[in-house]
Nucleic acid binder design. Structure first.
Lengths: 192, 192
DNA sequence: TTAATAAGATACATTTCCGCATCTTGACGC
DNA sequence: GCGTCAAGATGCGGAAATGTATCTTATTAA
């Protein structure tokens, strides 16, 4: 029987995709090396040679997935447009947020004494903050009042987004995102 | 050797307290019947006779703990006072929120297709909503504008609270709670 | 063409935790 | 005081995963 064998990056990628599908369907708690190997069409030893257990595999799969949905928002000359676009892009990453928290709740908490906040910081290492430049541009345009941007207000939108994902395990619908922007965030920061 | 034996409710309560301490220290993922039994000074069969596995034990411990911190806020004639008191009381339940989510992420997701939102609804069955009467009183007093109470705004404070707990695994400090009330919630709903 | 490398299959030992069966003994009702 | 019931101790068997050793074979580079 002639078999095709994948190697190196091809194989890495195939395994990480398989791991991601498993994570999406079963959750981190239901993830097994066996199932990932089977879905990727390979066997456990191949995974063991690459990653040190399912925790490391999960982090790798998470990074791999995040890499597919880069989060950037270009200057559109209008704060509202940019915020809505940011939330729209973030929706693609909702599943990753959920998996990340499940991972933390399952494992990270046991071995470290840290919080999901720190896990998030680790996962996002190297990624640029997207919100800050958006708000900086809006301040420069005179759209919003810099004095109103206390930390709790600054992170309001992303916090609401994250909260919704954590509680429903799904991305917030567009209508909800519009209300967050128009009825909550903008009224709080608008220069007037 | 003379030994004292606890029975019925005394024993139940001792085991649930032990389970709660284990949950606080190790998290749900690190919870074992063995450890709970040991900490409660009893043995595994005693737990097995009462609860069907650690999932049921966790839910029971969660309910038991919630029962110790009832969440009620009396009429104080002032919305701001009542909101701050609500958040203050909620801080006692922060650990419960964290454990609840960890439990969901570990187990609930695998067996049901539901969300933490639904798990929360199950856990809070029978408990009265505390926020609603507070806001109703404030509307009656003319402190806030009922038209501004869209759902996303109504739940804003408790959502921010929950988000903070989920991300930091700790209760938000009083200063932060004050900013939420004074710089975010009240400006959005104040009748003017 | 050939030699080195790594993929893929299989099997084995280990670990961890659970439920249950069994047995003794203390607690409580009558 | 006595009988019933459940607490508490102990041990066994099983389920679920994991890591690793071993072996064959496809792939790739020289």
């Amino acid at each position: 029987m002639m078999e095709k064998r994948r190697r190196g990056n091809d194989l890495d990628s195939a395994i990480l995709d398989a791991a991601w599908l498993e994570l999406s369907e079963r959750g981190y708690a239901g993830l097994t090396m066996e199932a990932v190997a089977a879905r990727a069409g390979t066997s456990r030893p191949v995974l063991s040679r690459r990653w040190d257990g399912r925790a490391a595999l999960t982090v790798a799969a998470l990074r791999h997935q995040m890499h597919k949905h880069p989060l950037t928002v270009k200057d559109r000359g209008d704060l509202r447009k940019e915020l809505l676009e940011l939330l729209d892009r973030a929706a693609d990453r909702a599943a990753g947020v959920a998996v990340g928290l499940a991972f933390f709740a399952n494992e990270y908490f046991q071995h470290t004494r840290s919080s999901p906040l720190e896990l998030r910081a680790q996962l996002l290492l190297g990624e640029a903050n997207v919100l800050t430049p958006i708000l900086d541009r809006a301040v420069a345009r005179g759209e919003i009042d810099a004095k109103k941007l206390v930390p709790e207000v600054t992170t309001l939108l992303t916090d609401l987004f994250r909260h919704h994902v954590l509680m429903t395990w799904t991305a917030p619908p567009p209508a909800m995102r519009k209300i967050w922007v128009d009825a909550i965030f903008l009224p709080l920061v608008r220069a007037r």
